[in-house]
C-alpha cells in the first residue's frame, strides 16, 4: 500500500496546483471573447496568469482547497477499509507537504483538526468495478461555490417551474441568479435530476467530473445543456460577478429515474477553479498514472 499512498499524495498535488486543460482552454476562449479593457477581460487575464503560476510553482491555485472528495471505483478483491486508511494517511501528508489549507472544523468544539481529516472528512464515495484497475477521482471544490449550490423539488410556483425539463432550466437559472458573483464565476454547473435529495446532490456533483468537451449521451439533455448555458450567459453577471459575457463555461446534466411523486433537481455550482484529477492504478503490477 506504500506506493499507493505516495500516488494519492501525488494525486492531491496534481488536483490542487494544476487546473485540468479542458477547463483552462475554456477560460482562454472566454478571455478571447470578452472585450479588451473590460472588467471581464482583465479579470480573466489575471486568472489565467494565476493558473500558470500555480502549475509552475506547485502551489495551490486557490487557498481554499475545499473538502477533498473522492469518487472511487474499486476492483473486486481490493479492501475498502485499507483503501480508506491509505487515503486518510495521504490526506495528512498532502496537507503538510503541498501544503493544503486545513479545513476540517469540529462542529462540537469549533476546533480545526489541522490535517483535513475528521468525521466524514474527507468525503469518500466508492463502488465496485469490473476489471483490474483501481480508479480514484479527486475533486477539490472550494466552499464559496459549494455554498452557492441549491436544491429544488418541483413544482416551484414562483419560477413557473413544472415537473419537466423546462422546469429544470428555470431552477438552474434561479440558482445562478442567486449565486451572482459569490461563488467565483465563470461557473461550471452540474445538475442532477431524480428521485431523492441525497441521490441528486451526489449526481449533480459527479457531473463536475465530466470532461468539458464530452457530449451528453442523451440528445435531449445535450440540447438542454446548451440552451441553459446560453440563457445563463444572458444574465450578464460575468467573471467574478463584475459584469461580462461569461457567467458559466459549461452546464452538465445527469438523470436518474424518479418516483411519481418526486422531481428533485440539484444544482452544484463550481467556481472557475474546477479542480479534479484522476489516478489509475493497475492492481497486477502497481503501475499508475495521474491525469487531469
Amino acid at each position: 500500500m506504500l506506493k499507493l499512498l505516495d500516488s494519492i499524495v501525488e494525486l492531491y498535488k496534481k488536483a490542487a496546483s494544476s487546473l485540468p486543460p479542458d477547463v483552462e482552454n475554456a477560460l482562454m476562449s472566454a478571455h478571447a471573447k470578452e472585450t479588451k479593457g473590460t472588467n471581464a477581460n482583465s479579470i480573466l487575464a489575471t486568472i489565467l496568469a494565476n493558473i500558470r503560476l500555480a502549475r509552475k510553482t506547485g502551489r495551490p491555485i486557490c487557498q481554499d482547497t475545499g473538502v477533498p472528495t473522492f469518487f472511487i471505483k474499486v476492483p473486486c478483491g481490493v479492501s475498502h477499509i485499507e483503501l480508506k486508511k491509505a487515503i486518510i494517511k495521504a490526506t495528512r501528508i498532502a496537507t503538510m507537504e503541498i501544503p493544503l489549507r486545513p479545513n476540517a472544523v469540529d462542529i462540537l468544539t469549533e476546533e480545526n483538526t489541522g490535517d483535513n481529516t475528521g468525521r466524514g472528512f474527507p468525503i469518500l464515495y466508492s463502488e465496485e468495478t469490473k476489471g483490474k484497475t483501481l480508479t480514484i477521482d479527486l475533486m477539490l471544490k472550494g466552499a464559496g461555490c459549494e455554498n452557492a449550490g441549491q436544491i429544488y423539488k418541483l413544482p416551484v410556483d414562483e419560477l413557473k417551474a413544472e415537473r419537466d425539463l423546462d422546469g429544470v432550466r428555470r431552477c438552474v437559472l434561479d440558482a445562478v441568479y442567486k449565486a451572482q458573483g459569490k461563488g467565483c464565476p465563470p461557473y461550471i454547473i452540474g445538475v442532477g435530476i431524480g428521485a431523492s435529495k441525497d441521490q441528486v446532490t451526489r449526481l449533480a456533483k459527479e457531473q463536475l467530473l465530466r470532461d468539458l468537451k464530452d457530449r451528453n449521451k442523451y440528445n435531449v439533455l445535450a440540447n438542454l445543456e446548451k440552451r441553459i448555458l446560453n440563457d445563463i450567459n444572458k444574465l450578464g453577471i460575468g467573471p467574478l460577478g463584475l459584469g461580462g459575457k461569461t457567467t458559466a463555461i459549461v452546464v452538465k446534466i445527469g438523470v436518474n429515474h424518479r418516483h411519481p411523486a418526486s422531481y428533485f433537481v440539484d444544482v452544484s455550482v463550481s467556481c472557475w477553479a474546477n479542480r479534479r484529477a484522476r489516478l489509475k492504478w493497475q492492481i497486477r503490477n502497481s503501475k499508475f498514472e495521474i491525469r487531469n
Binding site: 503560476l53 502551489r59 495551490p60 491555485i61 481554499d64
Partner: peptide
C-alpha cells in the same frame, strides 16, 4: 474593494 477570487498564488506574490 474587490480582489480576484481564486487568484491565490498571484495575490500571495
Amino acid at each position: 474593494l474587490h480582489t480576484i477570487g481564486g487568484a491565490a498564488v498571484y495575490l500571495a506574490d
